[in-house]
Design a binder for these strands. Structure first.
Lengths: 242, 242
DNA sequence: CCAATAGTGTCTGTGAGACAGTATGTC
DNA sequence: GACATACTGTCTCACAGACACTATTGG
C-alpha cells in the first residue's frame, strides 16, 4: 500500500510532488422561461491560451483553495456570481475527469445542477438563458459540457417522474395548474389533471395562501412551498412510461 | 470572465501556476457474504507523513495522470487491483472535496460504488470484508470515508427499492429465493414472495437455465442474468415504507 | 348566456400485500 | 408418509388513468 502510494508519486517523507489534475466546478442552472425549460450559459473568454475561446459553456471555473471551503460552497459561489441567487435547489450531478477533456491537461470537474425560479435571476452580462427543445440544446458547448448538460437534463426528467423537484422552479406563489404546466414542460408530455392534483396535494409539500389568482375565468387557489424544503419522493412514477 | 479566471490563478499567457487540490478516487465495494452485506476495506499504510496510519479506509488513491485515461478507468483499476474483478457493476457515487478532509491539504475524491458477487473476489492481503449491520459499519474509517460509505449504503438501499441492482451481487446462476434473500438482506426487511416473483419475472431481466438447484426439498429453478446487463427500473417501490 | 379555466367524482385497471393452497423433492 | 421448501392462486386495497361532470369567474 505504501509502495503503491509511492509509485503514484507520494514520496517517502509524505511529499506530494507529483502532477495533479486541474480541478473545476461547473453548474447546470435550469429555470422555466417563456413556457420552456432553459439553461444558463456563458461565453468563454478570448484570451491567450484560453481553450475554446468565445464558445458557449456552463458557468464554472477552478476551485479556489483559498476561497472555497468545499465543493458545494464553490458551486454555490459560482451560482451566486452568475445569477445572484443564494438559496436554490442545488444538487451534485457527478464528476467528469479525463486526460483529454481539457487541452490544458488532465482535468476533473465536479458538476452540480441547480433549479431556480425564473424571476430570481439577476444575470451578469456574459450569461444568457438558452432554451431546451425536445430535450436537447441546439448549441454546441465547450469541453464536454454537452455531455454534462445531457446528463443533467436526463437526471432532471428522471427525478421529475417521482419527486417534487419542479416546485423549486416556481415563483413564491403559484397555482396547481401552473405547477402542472411546469411538470409537463420538463417531461414534454401532458399529465392527467385529476391524478396530478391528488398526488401533489397528498404529498403535503405545498400549502394554500389566502389569495386567488384572478383571470378571465374561474380564479385558482394560490399555493406556496411549505417550509423545510426537502424534496418529496413519490412511491410511483407518473404515467408508467409505456 | 478572463478576469475571474486570472484572479483564480490563470496567468494571462494561460499559465496554470496556482495551487491545485489533491485528486483521488475511492471505491465502495459491496458483496454478500455469510448472509450479510459486506464492504471491502483496506488498512492505511504506516509510513512517515501518511495520514490516518493503520486506520481502515476505502480502497482508493491518487489519480495517476500517466496511467488513468479517465475517472471511471481509475476506479476500475483500483477495483481490479484489490479484488481481481474486471467487469462488475460500477457506478459513480459522488465527490467529496474540502480544505479539511485530508490533512495534507485541499483534496477532492471521486467516489464510486461497485457490486460484485462474493466468490469473484481474489483479494490482496491488505483488503478484508467487513459486515454492515443495521445499515451501519461498526468500525471508524479514515478521512471522511465514513460519510462516503454511509451515502453508498443509503444509495444502495434506495435503488434496491426500485431496481434490479441486487442481481449484480449474485453468482452466475441463482434461484429466485436466493435473489429474494439478497433483496431482504440489503433492505433489512422481509418481502412478500408472490409479489416479488411477479415483479422480477415480469421485468424480463433473468432467464431460466436448464437446471434445478437440488436440496432436501423441492428443487428450485436456476436462473441467470440476461445479456445486456443494464439495470432494470421498476415503476413502483416495494412495500411503500410506512 | 357563453367561454374558459378550476376543481371534483366516478369507473376501471394494475399491481402490491396478505395468505392460503398446491407441487415436488428428500428422508 | 412427514417435512421442507418452491411455486401458484385468490382476495383486497391503493392509486393512477381516463373522462365526464360541476363550479366560478369575466365578458
Amino acid at each position: 500500500m505504501a509502495g503503491e502510494a509511492r509509485a503514484e508519486g507520494l514520496g517517502k517523507a509524505g511529499q506530494l510532488d507529483f502532477p495533479r489534475p486541474l480541478t473545476t466546478v461547473d453548474v447546470v442552472i435550469f429555470a422555466i422561461l417563456d413556457d420552456r425549460l432553459g439553461v444558463l450559459l456563458v461565453q468563454r473568454p478570448a484570451g491567450d491560451g484560453e481553450p475554446f475561446p468565445l464558445s458557449l459553456a456552463l458557468p464554472g471555473g477552478f476551485v479556489d483553495v483559498a476561497k472555497d471551503r468545499d465543493l458545494a460552497a464553490c458551486a454555490a459561489r459560482k451560482l451566486k456570481e452568475k445569477t445572484g441567487v443564494t438559496s436554490p435547489y442545488l444538487e451534485q450531478l457527478g464528476s467528469w475527469g479525463s486526460a483529454v477533456r481539457d487541452p490544458r491537461g488532465w482535468s476533473a470537474t465536479h458538476a452540480y445542477f441547480a433549479l431556480i425560479p425564473e424571476e430570481a435571476g439577476v444575470l451578469t452580462p456574459d450569461a444568457r438563458w438558452f432554451p431546451i427543445r425536445d430535450g436537447r440544446l441546439k448549441e454546441r458547448l465547450a469541453f464536454d459540457h454537452g455531455d454534462i448538460l445531457a446528463t443533467a437534463i436526463q437526471r432532471l426528467r428522471n427525478k421529475v417522474e417521482y419527486t417534487s423537484l419542479p416546485a423549486y422552479l416556481m415563483p413564491a406563489e403559484f397555482t396547481l395548474p401552473d405547477l402542472q404546466r411546469v411538470y409537463e414542460i420538463v417531461l414534454d408530455r401532458p399529465l392527467e389533471k385529476s391524478a396530478f392534483r391528488t398526488r401533489i396535494l397528498s404529498a403535503d409539500m405545498i400549502e394554500p395562501v389566502a389569495k386567488m389568482r384572478r383571470g378571465p375565468n374561474r380564479p385558482a387557489q394560490l399555493y406556496r412551498l411549505k417550509k423545510g424544503r426537502e424534496p418529496v419522493y413519490f412511491v410511483r412514477t407518473f404515467n408508467p412510461p409505456e
